[in-house]
Every structure is written in structure tokens, then in C-alpha cells.
Design a protein around this nucleic acid. Structure first.
Lengths: 248, 248
DNA sequence: CGCGATTTGTGCACGCCTTCACAAGCGCCT
DNA sequence: AGGCGCTTGTGAAGGCGTGCACAAATCGCG
């Protein structure tokens, strides 16, 4: 159940290919955000950017950003900042975005339909190459230029297209079975939108996105805020915040 | 909105308003997962559940689960486990789910369209009461029983419907302006699907979900795995771990 | 050519979270 | 009634991540 980093003796790599250092998980999760900010800055015509500026664009602390970037080597110039183009290239390499990765999506329901056409995927280097569904009524349907196939074809197509990443957008009840099929087909990374826990072999990475959970967390904060305002001394932090229109 | 209805606050009868203890943020983020697992177990006919069992159903460590639950008071019985129904009630109360929260959604594009019809929201106590879009061509459109309104109506409708939570599903370029309007309309919690950083007053909570970022994180792990398998030392079968995550 | 302004990279301390390990409590069986 | 097994609740230790504060490095300018 735990996660053990420690690759296979990567540390002593004096050689050519970096052979990843142990990047903290928290850093990895922020790299895509930095990348997005860098692309924005680059399109704005900036050649270099300071850690302060990039941190602001990414919504993080500048010290944190510098430490994150230092983990993947020093690509900044003191007194100047970071070379935008170089940093983009570097982060994209670390994230493995320099090679297009084929993605398949299982479950063409309400959410899956939207994901299939989501611009954000294609614009960031991910291409959905196949759609699957268990419902025979949906098989054959055309969605954003792709034909929905029956899930039984998953194994064959996954090999043909070298699919490494699978997205599950099925109901919770079907998710585990789909995950098993994805694993059997050689998929080693799964993005799960179904509200359930998936059980997979240790070499398969799973990330879960549960939209309802996000709302529930917000609900808690709403509840807390409502409770605090009803109490004495419930001063909220962050002096910058001014309250408006909440009274009634 | 501010009618606080803590109907049956079990526990100490002396005080009335519980005045939340400082729940760790990490705990809060897991409570919805426990809740979902509990509902599943309850439907399966279980009256009580041990921390071990519930932890397995929620995909976490049992010690972590016990500590999480202990933070919101002791509702378990040693030697037996937790009363499923009681624990559900308790978590729902803490999360503020005992009161229905009105949600509005801005941006009825590809993703917004799917979110508007997402079953997972309604089934967990959230009701989308209004849809908005800036595109006049979309105004008036019927989506899952709701009529899309122009975003200029946001302020008025937000007050009428006592909307406290707003969901942004617009392109990145429009997100900040929408957020400003939501804040001006009294919304104090925002779920942002646009790939950008929002600037809001301190009393407003923002949670961000970026689908592409999730894929990029998976891409990194794919890249890392590919690099490792290309190195000597073979692949230890049992090794690595999977992780679930929620970006913050 | 040297100096100051600027910005990176990082050592260090602090706090949060996780995990272990175990005492305390509860029910059941004999 | 008493003991025994099971499970919760929690003290303590360790790890991870964050943020501060500062030395080192680089550029521009006089």
C-alpha cells in the first residue's frame, strides 16, 4: 500500500541521460501548472521570467517554485531568471510530453462524451485514439471524429495503438471490470472518474478525479464559514479579503 | 441561506453549536470518500463496520481512518466497529450535506454541458439550479431541464436562489471575469475547471480541477517507468505503489 | 575593472501528516 | 462472573513539504 520511490540505483548516474532523481510527488503535481504558466508567458513574448513572476503566474510561493525547479537541475541564471523556452523544454521532457501518448477512453456516457471532445487534452499533447463502451447501442456512434467501439475490442486496439493511458468514465459498478481489462491490455496508467476505489497491480498508476468530492469539500468550507460567522471572534484570516454582499 | 439546521447534533447535549474543531485539511478531503464507502456498505446491508473494513473500502490505511474519525468525535464501539448509519449521519453533518446547497454552473460548452447532467452531483445532494453562458447563441437552450441564461443575470439569480457555490467551466480567458462576477454575486465557494489561476478575496474558497494536469502527471509516471525498465536491474515484480490524489 | 543591484539555489527550522504500536474499552463465551 | 479476543482511540516517532533567510552567482553600469 505504500509508495516506495527508490528506483533502481538511479543516483549514481554520471552519464548522459538524466535518469530521474527522486522528484517529490508534490513537485510533480505542480510541474504541469508551471508549464501552463510558461506557455502563457511565452506567448506573451517573454524570453526570461523570474521565479517571482512565474510563481505569481502559477499561483504558488516563489521559494517553493525555485526549490521545485532546482530538483530537476538548475536551468536559471542568477540575476536574470529562467529562460522561458529552455524551461518549457525541460519540464516537457521530464513529464514525458515530448512524446505523444495515446489515450483511450472507456465509457461514452454523459461525462465521457464531454471528455472525448475536450480541447484541453489535445492542446496539451494528449490524443484520444479510441473510444469504448459496453452498450451496444452506442457502438458505432461517431463522436468528435472517433467511432465508439465495443469494449471487447479493447485488448486488440490497445496493442495496435500502443495505448499506455486509459481513462475510465463509466458508472462505478463497471469501473473495476474496465480497469481489469485495461490492465490486461497492457495499460499502465489509469485516470478514473468513477466514484470507486480501483484495485490494480503495483506497476499500474491510478489517479482518481471525483467531481462530487470536490463539491463536498467546498460544502464543508461553506458549512464552516456559516458556523464561524455565527460565532463571536470568528475573524477570517487574510486581511486582503473584504466582505461584500454577504449580509442580508 | 443562514438558517442553520443542526437537527440532531448527537454527542454532548450541553453545547448547541459544535464549533468545529480544527479538522486537518487532509482529513476533510478524505471524508467524502469515507462517506461514499459507507453508503455502499449500508446498501449492502451492513450495520456496523470495522475501521479495517471501511479503510479497505475507501482505499486508505486503517490507522489513518481511525485518526480521521477520531477528529470529529468518537462514534465507534471498541470490539465492534462503527455504526454505519450513525457515522453517515455524522459525516454528512460535518460536511454540511444535511442542507441542500444550490450550485450554479457558468460555461455551457463541451465540459459544462456534461457537468450539467452529471448524475453524481444530484445523487450526492447537490443541485444545479442555474446555468449561465456569455454566448447569446446558447442562451435559452434547454439542458437537462434547465434553461441557459445569460451571464448578466447571474447577480440577480444568485440572490434569488441563494447560490453559494459556483462552478466555472469556461475557457481560461473568461474564467477570471466570471469569478469576479460570482464573488460580486455573493458566491463564496468556487470550483474551477478552467486551466488558470483565479484571484479572489480571502473569504472565498477555490478548488481547481484541471483534467489535463492529471494526464500530465500520469505521463510523468509513464516516462519514469519507461526509463526505469530501460535501465539494468530488471523489474521487481512487487514494487511500486499506486496513489490516489486530489490536487489542491 | 570594480561595484551594486538583482535573482537563483539551498541550508535550516517548523509544522502537518502519516504510521506504528499499544493501552483502554467492549462484547461474547464459558 | 470472569476471562479472552477483538477493535477503537491515541501517544510518539518519523517523514515530507513548506517557507524563511541568506550566501553565491551573474549582469549592467559607471
Amino acid at each position: 500500500m505504500s509508495q516506495q520511490r527508490h528506483g533502481s540505483t538511479p543516483g549514481s548516474g554520471s552519464g548522459n541521460v538524466p535518469a530521474f532523481p527522486d522528484l517529490p510527488e508534490a513537485t510533480i503535481a505542480r510541474l504541469p501548472e508551471y508549464l501552463r504558466a510558461l506557455h502563457n508567458l511565452g506567448e506573451g513574448g517573454a524570453d526570461t521570467i523570474s521565479s517571482e513572476g512565474l510563481a505569481a503566474a502559477a499561483g504558488v510561493n516563489s521559494a517553493k517554485l525555485r526549490k521545485d525547479l532546482s530538483h530537476l537541475g538548475s536551468y536559471g541564471t542568477r540575476g536574470v531568471g529562467y529562460d522561458v523556452a529552455l524551461l518549457i523544454e525541460q519540464i516537457e521532457y521530464v513529464l514525458g510530453l515530448d512524446q505523444r501518448r495515446a489515450v483511450c477512453l472507456v465509457g461514452v456516457g454523459n461525462l465521457g462524451h464531454a471528455l472525448a471532445g475536450y480541447d484541453g487534452f489535445a492542446s496539451r499533447g494528449f490524443k484520444i485514439v479510441a473510444l469504448f463502451d459496453a452498450d451496444a447501442a452506442k457502438v458505432g456512434e461517431q463522436i468528435h471524429g472517433l467511432t465508439v467501439r465495443h469494449i471487447d475490442e479493447l485488448g486488440q486496439v490497445a496493442v495496435e495503438e500502443s495505448i499506455a493511458i486509459g481513462v475510465i468514465a463509466t458508472p462505478a459498478g463497471a469501473a473495476q471490470a474496465v480497469a481489469d481489462e485495461l490492465v490486461a491490455a497492457g495499460v499502465t496508467s489509469i485516470l478514473n472518474f468513477a466514484p470507486c476505489v480501483l484495485s490494480v497491480p503495483g506497476n499500474v498508476d491510478v489517479r482518481k478525479v471525483d467531481l462530487a468530492i470536490e463539491l463536498q469539500i467546498l460544502s464543508f468550507h461553506e458549512h464552516r464559514k456559516a458556523t464561524l460567522t455565527a460565532l463571536p471572534g470568528g475573524r477570517s484570516a487574510t486581511g486582503a479579503g473584504n466582505q461584500e454582499a454577504v449580509g442580508s
